[in-house]
Amino acid sequence: MSEGAHLRHTEAGQPDASHTAILYLEDLNVSFDGFKAINNLTLYIDKGELRCIIGPNGAGKTTMMDIITGKTRPDSGQAWFGQTVDLLKLSEPEIANAGIGRKFQKPTVFESHSVAENLELAMHGNKSVWYSLRARLSGEQQALIDETLQTIGLTDHYHQAAGALSHGQKQWLEIGMLLVQKPYLLLVDEPVAGMTHQEMERTAELLTSLAGKHSVVVVEHDMDFVRSIAHQVTVLHQGSVLAEGTMDEVQNDQRVIEVYLGE
């Protein structure tokens, strides 16, 4: 890890990134059947940051998230969550327990259960559905569910079956299902695909509100949406970081223009 990259865990188990990054990816390489999906990738995410990752299809965005969450093991390189947690030594459940949550593009909610029950199930982790819904919530757990419903804008849908929600509302519910697990780092994959314009605006507000309390990494194709939320944008191309900066800096970068326009 780079010199000066200090992140300790506090006594409560929370990563302390007061000086620098919460996520370090350094010199990562992954090949699949001779195809180099990740090529000397180095990326740092700061505590409380909202970072957008863009890039053409095949740029390595999904593989990068697979490495962070333990789904894919790199051929070489390092991946650290803070200074003390070596992600390459942990299983997928251990990485989730360490405080990294991932939201996939397609929402996976329990459609026959109510919105509140979905949050309750997510909070209880891998225990059986029957046990989870019979276990009595503590006051603290109930408060967390209420607070999360407010954050994701679904307080009025407390008792509604998740299957009856709109596409956008299901996406927000799934973000809520991650939030009740109190992650320090959230990985969000194409959150606005298939959303109405109004839902996209609400999603922008939601993700922006999470930054600071959490570190949020958003992978997205919709450039208007990225512009509406991004302070810092990373462009991936052929498994490497091609450019990094503000949306304006990145969009005016000649290398980025060539990659996107094929010039």
Rank of each mutant, 00 (worst) to 15 (best):
S2H: 14
G4T: 04
L7D: 12
A12K: 09
A17G: 14
H19S: 13
E26T: 12
E26K: 15
F32D: 01
G34D: 02
N39Y: 08
I45A: 14
C52A: 11
I54V: 12
K61Y: 03
T62E: 02
M64D: 03
M64W: 02
R73Y: 15
A79T: 01
V85F: 08
V85A: 09
S91Y: 15
S91N: 14
E92V: 13
E92T: 10
E92C: 14
I95W: 03
I95N: 05
G99D: 10
K103Y: 05
F104E: 07
E111K: 11
H113R: 15
H113A: 14
S114Y: 04
S114T: 11
E117L: 08
L119H: 07
E120S: 14
K127H: 12
V129T: 11
Y131H: 14
S132P: 01
A135V: 13
R136K: 13
S138P: 00
S138Q: 06
G139T: 08
E140N: 09
Q142L: 12
E147N: 10
T148R: 09
L149W: 08
Q150G: 13
T151C: 08
D156F: 09
D156H: 10
H157R: 11
Y158E: 07
H159G: 11
Q160K: 08
Q160A: 02
A164R: 06
A164Q: 08
K170Y: 05
I175S: 03
L178P: 05
K182V: 13
Y184W: 12
V188M: 06
E190T: 02
V192S: 07
G194P: 00
H197L: 13
Q198T: 05
T203A: 13
L207E: 01
S209K: 01
L210R: 02
A211V: 00
G212W: 01
K213M: 11
K213H: 13
K213Y: 13
V217N: 06
M223L: 03
V226Y: 05
V226L: 03
R227V: 11
S228K: 10
H231C: 03
V235A: 02
L236H: 03
H237C: 13
H237A: 12
Q238H: 13
S240F: 10
M247N: 06
D253R: 03
Q254D: 09
Q254A: 09
R255V: 03
R255N: 08
R255F: 05
V256C: 04
V256Y: 01
E263M: 11
